[in-house]
Simulated assay, not measured.
Amino acid sequence: MEAAHRDILRKNYSGLVQAIQPVQEVVDKLLQFKVLTCLMKAEIIEKPQTSFDRELETDKTELQDPRCHIDLGNDVFVTAKMWNDELNIHVRKYDVYPSGRSYPTKRGIVLSLKHWLELSGVHFKLQEAIDQGRTHDYAHVGANMYATLDPNGGVDLRQWEKYEHLGRVVPTAKGILLSKQQWQKPRDCCDVMTDFVPELKEMVPCMGQEDHQNQIGYLMCSFCNPNSDHKAVNNVPRVQSDFFQKGRHA
Rank of each mutant, 00 (worst) to 15 (best):
E2M: 05
E2H: 07
A3N: 07
A4K: 13
I8Q: 06
I8V: 14
N12T: 10
S14T: 12
L16K: 00
V17A: 01
Q18A: 07
Q18T: 12
A19C: 10
A19R: 12
I20N: 02
P22D: 13
V23F: 00
E25M: 06
D28H: 08
K29H: 11
Q32A: 09
V35T: 12
T37A: 02
L39M: 07
T50Y: 04
L56N: 12
E57Y: 09
D59H: 10
D59G: 13
T61N: 03
E62N: 05
Q64T: 10
P66C: 06
I70V: 15
L72W: 07
N74S: 11
V76A: 05
F77W: 12
V78K: 02
K81Q: 15
D85I: 03
V91C: 15
R92T: 15
Y94C: 02
D95I: 12
D95H: 07
V96F: 01
Y97E: 09
P98W: 05
P104Y: 04
T105V: 04
T105Q: 03
R107W: 01
R107I: 13
V110C: 09
L111E: 02
S112L: 04
K114G: 01
K114Q: 15
H115E: 03
H115D: 15
H115A: 06
E118G: 01
S120K: 15
H123G: 00
Q132D: 14
G133E: 08
T135I: 13
T135S: 14
H136Q: 14
D137P: 01
G142K: 05
A143E: 11
N144M: 12
M145Q: 09
A147M: 12
A147R: 03
A147G: 07
T148A: 09
L149W: 04
D150S: 07
P151K: 04
Q159Y: 09
K162T: 07
K162N: 07
Y163G: 00
Y163I: 10
H165Y: 12
L166K: 14
R168Y: 06
V170Y: 02
P171Q: 09
G175N: 09
S179A: 03
S179Y: 03
S179C: 02
P186L: 06
C190K: 00
V192E: 05
V192S: 04
M193D: 01
M193K: 00
M193W: 11
T194R: 11
T194V: 14
F196K: 03
L200P: 08
K201S: 12
E202T: 13
M203P: 06
C206N: 11
M207P: 00
Q209E: 14
Q209N: 09
D211F: 14
D211G: 00
H212M: 15
Q213N: 09
Q213V: 02
I216W: 08
Y218H: 10
Y218G: 05
L219M: 15
M220S: 11
S222A: 10
N225I: 00
D229S: 11
V233I: 15
V236R: 11
P237F: 05
V239W: 03
S241I: 05
S241L: 08
F243I: 10
F244C: 03
R248Q: 13
H249L: 10
